[in-house]
Amino acid sequence: MSEGGQAMTEMTAGAAPPRDRNAGRMRQLSWWERYINIIGPLVMIIALSVGMAVSQPRFFAFDNLMIILQDAAIYMVLGMAMTIVITGKGIDLSIGAVAVLAALVMAILIKDHGWGPYPAMGVALVIGLACGTLNGLVITQFRVPDLLATLAMDQIYRGIGLVLAAGLVLARFPEPIPFLGRGRIADLIPTAAIVGLIALAAGFVLYRYTWLGRYAIAIGGNREAAQLTGINIDRQKVYHYALMGFCAAIAGILLTGRLNAIQATAGMGFALHTIAAVVVGGTALFGGRGTMFGTLVGVLLLAMVTNALVMLRFQFFWQLVASGVIIIASIGFYAWVQRRQGTGGRGDD
């Protein structure tokens, strides 16, 4: 910094040197304010943990913690891609239907056509990728807003799934599908959680160290600037949705394995639960900012709340009420922080 200061003095020789180079700038963000997006849900996790430690020590039993991880696994996979989609100012409401469609085709190939599990899983992933790409193309080529496009595509995929499965429940699949969905590695760690954590780690790299994440931030943060820079926004958005579809297919396989059964009406709450976890984790709902670590925190928080409510013998549906309250609390908290930092007015100009 001192070198820069020297250069400044040197170059302004002859011209009136500026009295204060930093005049008028907003005060520096302190470290906790910069990471506030994650601190909110972390504080909630700590509060919840303390509360449970007092009332239900069983909550921290190793087995219960593994159950929480197991529950969170699917949303880790979905949340990874959704973080990128939302950062790019998109949203995907069709992921439940895509997951189920991919899983159903896999199930039908195995049960009715005698396919082996691996080729069938491959087909499921291809279907997820194709559905996601189609979402992206509908949004970018027909200029349908992301929300409406994926809402409509959700209906379409769900409809196709219902036609294919004809109301049946397909059950009992060969390994490795149950192992992926509900198995434990070394009889300890849920396989699904490992898959979820790997997905998030890959997402972290994608977000920070590749064009995909960087351009998503640019598109969500200042679309015009992204365009002027020469970023092909349509192409990037198709990539986002393709990745989302691919991850939805993985989630579909995990879901099938977890119950060792799949039916066309499964996965109904995937989209909203995932969006909630991502937003609670500090990703801005209208794009331009997000973190993979925050998404992990958001997913874990929602899974812990669900688990705690079950343990405290609340009826399962209270979970919906709780996640609603958490979402409003988090977003309200961010809005308050934003106002306090005074950045509201100078967003992306």
Binding site: R214, I217, A218, G220, G221, N222, E224, A225, A226, L228, T229, A284, G288, R289, R346, G347, D348, D349
Partner: peptide
């Protein structure tokens, strides 16, 4: 308008 992405 500078064309900066303010979140970066």
């Amino acid at each position: 308008n500078l064309g900066l992405v303010d979140t970066l």
